[in-house]
Amino acid sequence: MSWTVATFNVNSVRSRLPILERWLDNNSKPDVLCLQETKTQDETFPLEWFTDRGYSVSFRGQKSYNGVALASLKEPSEVVFGLVDGDLRPFDTRAISARFGSLWVVNTYVPQGKSIDHDDYGVKQDFLLKTGSMVSTMAEEGEVLWVGDMNVAPQEMDLTNPKTKGNHVCFHSVIKEVFARASSDLVDVFRKHRPDPGEFSFWDYRVKDALSRNIGWRIDHILASPGLADRSLDSWVDREPRSWEKPSDHTPVLASFEGVI
Rank of each mutant, 00 (worst) to 15 (best):
V147C: 02
V147E: 00
G148I: 12
D149A: 03
M150P: 03
V152T: 13
A153S: 05
P154Q: 02
P154A: 01
Q155W: 01
Q155S: 08
Q155L: 11
E156G: 00
D158M: 04
T160L: 06
T160W: 07
N161D: 14
P162Y: 02
P162S: 03
T164F: 15
G166C: 07
G166V: 12
G166K: 15
V169K: 09
F171E: 14
F171K: 12
H172A: 10
H172K: 12
S173R: 15
V174M: 14
I175C: 06
K176I: 09
E177I: 07
F179C: 05
F179Q: 05
F179P: 03
F179S: 05
F179N: 04
A180N: 10
R181K: 09
R181I: 02
S183L: 01
S184M: 08
S184P: 04
D185V: 05
L186F: 08
L186V: 02
D188H: 04
D188T: 03
V189P: 09
V189D: 09
R191G: 07
R191L: 07
R191A: 05
H193S: 02
H193Y: 01
R194S: 06
D196Q: 14
D196F: 07
D196N: 07
D196S: 10
G198S: 04
F200I: 04
S201F: 12
S201R: 14
S201H: 14
F202S: 01
W203N: 01
W203P: 02
D204C: 09
D204N: 14
Y205S: 05
K208W: 00
D209E: 12
A210V: 10
A210E: 08
L211P: 06
L211A: 14
S212D: 11
S212F: 04
N214H: 04
I215P: 02
I215M: 11
G216I: 10
W217E: 06
W217G: 06
R218F: 06
I219F: 04
H221F: 13
L223F: 11
L223G: 10
L223V: 06
P226L: 10
D230S: 11
D230Q: 13
D230T: 08
D230I: 06
